[in-house]
Simulated scan of single mutants.
Amino acid sequence: MSIQVNGREISSREINIESAHHQEPGADPRHAWRRAAVALTVRELMLQRARQVDLTVPDDPEGQDAALDALVEREVNMPAAEEDECRRWYEQNLEAFRSPDLVEVRHILLAAAPEDMDGRDVAREQAEALLSRLEQEPRAFPAMAAAHSRCSSSAEGGHLGQVSRGQTVPEFEDVVLRLPVGLAGRPVETRYGFHVVEVLQRIPGEQLPFDAAKTKIKEYLEERTRRRAIHQYIRLLAGEADIKGIDLDASESMLIQ
């Protein structure tokens, strides 16, 4: 199936070639074909507009890209993000500008597969027994980790180093990042089994000041504005064009990208 933009044909062959740049692993090839069709249609709309406003449009792709950049620069209003806007964004998203909390932790893993219910019962009992011993012999943690832990950290006395959000499995972090310094009062359960945990140190995250974050916020807000403005510009061009073979209104999410 071909597409026509103001009488200019985009062939199925062109779309098939372009679709190679839009294919995602495991995704339906038809989705890639659709994205390619939208991309080529939008490109053709903008190239035609560039010629209408007397911009030089070379035959080579790199030259055409430059012409499209010049068209956007000429016809799309891109207001700069003012400092007040940047500050509002910062204040509404403080957590994004905070360094992560860290905990220095060591553990003893009593391993059991998630589906092995009997094995998990045994692992829990073993973890509780080790925890009882450690409450009486806290200095024995490295030796017990070396003897009982099924984690490679056993060679380091169970020491995992400093852990922050996203470095281990969520069910481990959800508990450990809230624990006070010291031996945890009960084993921590994860998909890997049960962990006897000791928090050695807590390092609270720090808030990045606005002045340090301002440049990145400005870049983000201006890029977001740019995408929206170009999207609206493309919709305007499409509304004035004679397009056959594709419905850009039905491709709204792809058009935004």
Rank of each mutant, 00 (worst) to 15 (best):
S2I: 00
I3F: 01
V5W: 01
E9A: 09
S11K: 06
S12R: 11
I15Y: 00
Q23I: 09
E24P: 01
P25Q: 10
D28K: 07
P29D: 11
R30D: 08
R30H: 10
W33K: 06
R35F: 00
V38K: 04
A39M: 06
T41P: 07
T41R: 04
M46H: 05
M46G: 03
L47W: 11
V53F: 07
V53S: 08
D54P: 05
P58F: 12
E62K: 02
D69H: 14
A70L: 15
V72Y: 13
V72M: 11
A80S: 13
A80E: 14
Y90Q: 09
R98A: 01
L102M: 13
V103Y: 03
V105L: 08
I108V: 12
L110D: 10
A111P: 01
A112R: 01
P114A: 12
P114G: 10
R124W: 08
L130P: 05
S132A: 14
R133Y: 07
E135S: 08
M144A: 10
A146P: 00
H148W: 06
S149T: 04
S149N: 00
E156L: 13
E156M: 10
E156S: 11
E156C: 00
G157Q: 00
G161H: 05
Q162H: 04
S164W: 00
T168A: 11
V169Y: 00
R178L: 04
V188H: 04
E189K: 09
T190D: 08
T190H: 03
R191M: 07
G193E: 08
V196N: 06
Q201T: 13
I203Y: 00
P204D: 09
E206L: 08
E206Q: 14
P209I: 03
P209M: 07
P209V: 05
D211S: 11
D211K: 09
K214V: 12
T215Y: 14
Y220L: 14
E222W: 06
A229Y: 05
A229C: 05
I230N: 15
I230R: 15
I243A: 04
K244I: 09
K244P: 00
S251H: 03
M254R: 05
